[in-house]
Simulated scan of single mutants.
Amino acid sequence: MAMTVEEATRIVTPLYEALNRPAEKDVGALLAKAAHPDYKSYGTNQDFMTRDQLAQVFSGIGKAIPDLRWTIEEVHPIGDDKIVVRGNATGTPVGEIFGAKPTGKSFETISIDLFTVRDGKLAQAYHVENWVDALEQMAKK
């Protein structure tokens, strides 16, 4: 049976909640609520992070971007085990991010995530964010 938008949104929301001001939250607990212990988050077709590694990355980004806000713009369930999410991220870094020093300027960028669901939790994700554009926005004078 096909997953509804409401079911898909309920499944992915804790992961995105972990990305909203992550320095102020128990990111590990939110990711545990959303994802299986063997969750894999792919940034390329081969390279992935585990759920615990992802929690560390989210926390590190939260320290560099304390006002990080990641919103869910669209949720599209596909069949009974896939979810596509279009997200939007905004923030103003106060620490180094991807090798760039903070400039006091904010960014806004898009994200696309393709999740596989198993037993009502996230099992894996393939994700793309446009960090190049975000860094360019922060560097503009």
Rank of each mutant, 00 (worst) to 15 (best):
L30Y: 03
L30T: 04
L30K: 04
K33F: 02
K33D: 08
A34D: 05
K40I: 01
K40S: 06
Y42T: 04
G43T: 05
T44G: 06
N45G: 14
N45W: 04
Q46C: 05
F48E: 00
T50L: 03
D52C: 00
Q56G: 12
I61C: 00
I61D: 03
G62H: 07
K63S: 04
I65N: 07
P66G: 14
P66L: 08
P66D: 12
D67S: 05
D67A: 02
D67L: 00
L68S: 07
R69E: 13
W70V: 03
E73M: 11
E73G: 14
V75M: 02
V75W: 02
I78K: 11
G79F: 04
D80L: 01
V84H: 08
V84S: 09
V85T: 07
V85Y: 12
R86G: 08
G87N: 11
N88Y: 13
N88E: 15
A89P: 05
T92Y: 15
T92E: 11
T92N: 12
E96K: 08
I97Q: 04
F98K: 05
A100S: 12
A100D: 14
P102T: 09
T103E: 05
K105W: 09
K105Q: 13
S106N: 10
F107L: 01
I110S: 00
I112L: 15
I112Q: 06
D113C: 09
L114E: 07
T116C: 00
T116H: 12
T116S: 12
T116R: 14
D119L: 01
K121Y: 06
K121V: 07
Q124Y: 05
Q124C: 14
E129L: 08
W131A: 02
D133A: 15
